[in-house]
């Protein structure tokens, strides 16, 4: 039952976002989402409670500003590397330890690493992220972690765990 309601709400929200705020569209989408949720709910394997709303709010207000700031810095850095005639790059592949355990947290961390200055996540193993880095600094795992993922690990650990 909980699965059914979760599926119904998710489908309806996506439909409203795509179709826009129009009374007929909202009613029709609600009817179709109800029928679909009734059929599909046997096969899906997730559900969410009220706490996800709080989590989402925290996510938007704490995580997104840091993310956008890092994204802009990353792009200016990349633009400098692409445009300067000597191309100051020193690429290599390094392993970074992380404390985040659950799947969604790992996805968000890998996405964030990909969009921060000069780094690209290749693979997530248990407790490690393989990272390609345009300009390698330092030589031990702790130094890598300090440079790459410290901020995100702290923020995401507070939100998701």
């Amino acid at each position: 039952m909980k699965k059914g309601i979760s599926t119904f709400l998710a489908l309806w929200a996506i439909w409203i976002l795509i179709a826009g705020f129009n009374v007929t569209e909202i009613i029709l989408g609600g009817a179709v989402a109800l029928i679909l949720a009734f059929i599909v709910s046997k096969y899906v394997n997730y559900s969410f409670g009220f706490s996800i709303v709080l989590g989402a709010l925290k996510f938007v207000f704490v995580y997104i500003p840091v993310f956008i700031y890092k994204l802009v810095i990353a792009n200016l850095d990349m633009a400098y590397r692409v445009l300067s005639p000597k191309m100051p790059i020193n690429p290599g592949i390094v392993k970074v330890p992380t404390e985040i355990k659950n799947d969604f947290g790992k996805l968000v961390l890998a996405n964030s690493i990909t969009l921060t200055p000069g780094t690209l996540s290749l693979d997530v193993e248990d407790g490690h992220v393989l990272v390609h880095w345009v300009n390698v600094k330092g030589s031990t795992e702790e130094e890598y972690k300090k440079e790459i993922s410290k901020d995100f690990d702290k923020i995401l650990g507070g939100i998701i765990k």
């Binding site: 792009n75 990349m78 590397r81 191309m87 790059i89 592949i93 969009l115």
Partner: peptide, 24 residues
Amino acid sequence: LGGFGVLRMPDVFNRIQAGTKATT
């Protein structure tokens, strides 16, 4: 700049980085 980075960088990983970030 994204297109230019994809053209100019020397190997696959650097091209992916330049392409993804700047175009995003």
